[in-house]
Design a protein around this nucleic acid. Structure first.
Lengths: 323, 323
DNA sequence: CCATGAAATGAGCAAATGCTCAGATCGTAA
DNA sequence: TTACGATCTGAGCATTTGCTCATTTCATGG
């Protein structure tokens, strides 16, 4: 499927090296040993110890969390809920200007999702896609959620027929060992005939039904700037993007484009999405997103009541509250 | 109750300083910023940034966990279960010779207990006391376990009438917001009359009944060397300690002393404990303990089938398996 | 068998970190 | 107001850490 590079960080069946890295990291972080001491303890060179610890961090073997809720963030959560009628809000501390907001948001979101997934009661979670969700799932700890079901809200085949795209649901399913129902058709149909064809496929119809009756939807949010994900990934042509913006499009959730008031556009592009449009029924929708580029989209989604819960960072929360 | 020192690390209503520490730690650990950058971001001196991060770690605002199960530890867990007929075993990676085993064991045990406490089904947990359990509870994250009940297996009043001792159940209860039932009487009665008196007190009888019907017991284990906890804390005189050792006593759980085969001694000291002796009925008993000093006691408890689950560290596990 | 390239290793060095000490700041009491 | 004590703060320095580069090791293919 992919390149044959032996560098792949997927979990292959290595026995020793990763173990050793974990051990070095344990000695360093938990034991507070210096690299020299680690080297001695493990019978390796100080240099190697250093590399093992670095590797453990970069491969995500280390998970750090701050136990103390920062008052300012709690206040922002309260304000977001009050201002936009959300049922839930989570605000991560910011990491300063130069840093990708996801770097802070993802490790903050992951534990919350773990809590959701560790509910004893079997639930159906409907998932979107995108870089945000992918980054979050990478941070997710392996918890046993085998009683739950995961279903995709959106097709998983890109216009160039590649299926890899941002495969989020598989990764989620691996982490929590849940049954999963991807929507194995193109994200968008090219015309109404195709749309009806896709939707009439039994496995698609089943996934759509399951998604519509899910207990909770977890989605990202896309912006409509020049580097809109829909455009970059080839779902829209440059002309279409321009046209949609002219029609007022400022953001999208699961490929469904909406205007600044959070109303979905009445536009052919929107009508040909094979997946499910949220909100659907009384299923709560939790959205994960932060950063200046997503501000307009988030603001619109909030204004239109498209979402019920929001994960974001401090900077974005402040910006949203001050309009 | 305690000294009036304003240094107490109990959660007082500070607003800013701890928040700032948490924020600095977040920037450092999650954001990977250098102290200089943190200082700039927070508008403070590099020095202060350094101190804030250090403080955050020392105050336990930071929680680090290793995501990767180390093969060698898994193997030891398997071996422990097979060898001693345990239903569960957890082995933490060792931290090298010079370090208190608890420093590694406690952060390892805490997440496992969190999982136990996050079960949706209401349960009754029976708890022992001691330094081990206290260190573990300090590492525990605040999870909502308000549906559970916590009950003490042992009295909470020391011979000198001080109640503070190792107050574990309160700390657990605070962390998980569970109803708790301490056993508010002396640990040991001075004679049979007193024993019967204590046990006939309604709240003691109720606690004992609840403890006996608990879903799970979580206990530490004590050794009977010259610095036996029972002796150090004043529950035994030096003479008694010597006598008990002469009678074969090598360890104790909740103050009940047993011999090298894990059989409880038939001795007056043992008969005057007000609390509950484990195992009791079919309630599983999980024991937390590691270190050379506890080896004999652990070995005996395992041999006698006193415990069903064991939390220990690598070194101790190896020693136990090789007899 | 050797040639080749990629990854692992160790040395050296610059940056970052943690610690100590002296001075500053603040609150309290005379 | 001034003196006092305790904490907070910043500078300097020793230690620790992370990075780069040259070398070695290992695996693969000629």
């Amino acid at each position: 499927m992919m390149q044959a590079k032996p560098k792949g960080n997927v979990d292959d069946t290595d026995i020793s090296p990763r173990d050793l890295a974990a051990r070095a990291a344990w000695l360093s972080f938990v034991g507070g040993l210096t690299q020299d001491q680690i080297a001695q303890e493990l019978g390796i060179s100080r240099q190697r110890a250093q590399r093992l610890v670095a590797r453990a961090s970069s491969e995500g073997l280390i998970r750090v969390r701050i136990e103390h809720p920062i008052a300012e963030c709690l206040e922002l959560e309260r304000a977001l809920k009050a201002r936009f009628g959300l049922t839930s809000a989570w605000v991560s501390p910011g990491l300063g200007a130069g840093v990708d907001p996801l770097q802070g948001l993802a490790p903050f979101v992951a534990p919350v999702l773990e809590r959701l997934f560790s509910s004893d009661e079997p639930k159906v979670f409907a998932l979107g896609t995108g870089r945000t969700l992918k980054t979050v799932v990478d941070q997710l700890r392996a918890v046993d959620g085998s009683r739950h079901k995961l279903v995709s809200l959106i097709g998983n085949v890109a216009p160039d027929s590649s299926a890899s795209f941002y495969e989020v649901i598989m990764r989620f399913a691996e982490k929590i060992q849940a049954r999963h129902y991807p929507m194995s058709v193109p994200v968008a149909a090219r015309d109404d005939v195709e749309l009806n064809l896709y939707r009439s496929l039994p496995h698609v119809a089943a996934s759509r039904e399951l998604a519509k009756s899910a207990d909770l939807a977890i989605v990202g949010i896309g912006q409509m700037g020049d580097d809109a994900p829909l455009y970059v990934d080839g779902f829209l042509t440059a002309d279409e993007l321009t046209a949609l913006r002219a029609s007022g499009g400022v953001g999208e959730i699961c490929g469904h484009i909406f205007d600044a008031e959070g109303r979905y556009l009445d536009h052919p592009v929107n009508d040909r999405m094979v997946g499910v449009r949220v909100p659907e029924g009384d299923m709560p929708v939790y959205c994960i997103g932060a950063g200046a580029s997503k501000l307009a989209a988030l603001s619109a989604a909030l204004r239109g009541g498209l979402i019920d819960g929001l994960f974001t960072d401090e900077w974005t929360a402040k910006a949203l509250i001050s309009q």
